[in-house]
Design a protein around this nucleic acid. Structure first.
Lengths: 236, 236
DNA sequence: AGAATATTTCGGCGATGATCGAATCATAAA
DNA sequence: TTTATGATTCGATCATCGCCGAAATATTCT
């Protein structure tokens, strides 16, 4: 029984397969650590129930926690957990019933959001496309590789480009975007670029959401630096 | 609520998070299609219960079925489903309690098995290592790329090497091996090589298991063609 | 045709587990 | 210290769902 040998797989899948816990996990996919009460809210359950769920997920290796005063912050335990969640999202059947009037939150999520630690949504896909067009990034097999020019350009841009990217696993992974059904740049490079965009205040987080907003300077910056035609992205 | 927008994620995770269904899915990770009764056996449940589970998994998009006479064969619906399962295995905490006397089945699984459509286990990892040593394959970011020599060599070896590998997604993916905690070659290239090894009868499937056996000619062949020191692999 | 095997449907039992109220503990503000 | 807020523990309730027995349907074998 190859299943008995890995009882933890069952435990992990079981943990994810509950509506309340999944709601918490999905909101943690934004990459931020959130306190227990906030997580109870997103799941629409009482603090007691949330506490129970959270301790189970910590026990099961899905989450880590850190205490600050009377608050207890939870976050995903690793990139691997985020990746597993993404891969589940990827196999959930295509588009569900789509109401004519798409919810606002839905719309902002589709537009731009963080996917654990990197940029996703229309903007994430568009930026990746630009990097490819500008030959800063190249597809390689089912992965990306940073070109020499790309490394120089991004370093000048202030991104912490790794010394020897080829040595690192998951340096420039392709991540399948559920809203766009397209790939975009993930991995530690994707995270580093996103980090820089926040530093420059080209991006800012929206409260209580994975969604992010491109600021005014961000629009100008993305246009001049990467030639990203912002209106074209938002329109269609 | 980004969760309400994707109810299918919950459904999928829920389906995986049941012991009986997971047992079936794990055995289907071998890549073969199996009839309902066999799946009932691996899960140690009655045919009625299995039937119920199977129809749910088809409904949820995890499985596909094909009928041959009175038999109904089930298989994983896609590479993505296999990939999602692998990613769950990867986050299940390291090694569980390990009895001194490891079960025979466990041992053969560790040794060599199919991971959906490619070779895994000690042999899978060892073969990948050899391909890297021989410069037929190169690491690129978190992925593999077939070298020019590699393409020629494998084509001569009878592997259906794709015309333009760079165009294909998931051509030479790295797959994390749960038993070895090492990466090995997956993707369509990994599948093509494995297919060829079965053709040549260097590998043969063991009944009712994901485990595979390296045949006598296989040992010789792997040694002469890829310099794979078979005894060294099996020993430690 | 009759017998055997594979799969499915229905119905009811039973266990697991998500949920919240009430109470407790811990930390921070007043 | 007192008060307020975040988090946890315990206990009881209640719904869900996995499970199998019985019976039906379909296909193959003799």
């Amino acid at each position: 029984m190859s299943i008995n040998s890995r009882p933890n797989v069952l435990e992990v899948a079981n943990l994810i397969g509950d509506s309340s816990r999944l709601a918490m996990l999905m909101s943690l996919l934004g990459g931020k650590a959130l306190p227990a009460t906030d997580l109870a809210n997103v799941a629409r359950i009482s603090p007691q129930t949330a506490s129970s769920h959270l301790s189970k997920m910590v026990e099961g290796g899905l989450l880590l926690h850190e205490s600050f005063g009377r608050h207890k912050y939870f976050r995903l335990a690793s990139h691997e957990v985020a990746h597993a969640l993404e891969s589940l999202i990827a196999i959930a059947p295509p588009k569900p019933v789509r109401s004519l009037r798409e919810s606002d939150e839905q719309k902002t999520l589709r537009h731009a959001r963080t996917c654990y630690d990197h940029l996703a949504g229309k903007i994430g896909v568009a930026l990746t496309d630009r990097l490819l067009d500008m030959k800063l990034l190249e597809e390689s097999g089912s992965d990306y590789v940073l070109s020499v020019e790309g490394m120089e350009m991004l370093r000048n841009f202030g991104v912490e480009v790794d010394a020897d990217p080829r040595k690192r696993r998951h340096y420039a992974r392709q991540c399948l975007d559920w809203s766009e059904r397209r790939y975009h740049l993930a991995g530690s490079l994707g995270a580093a670029i996103t980090k820089r965009l926040f530093q420059l205040k080209w991006l800012e987080r929206l409260p209580n959401s994975r969604a992010v907003r491109v600021t005014k300077t961000g629009m100008q910056g993305l246009a001049s630096k990467f030639g990203l035609d912002y209106p074209a992205v938002t329109d269609k």
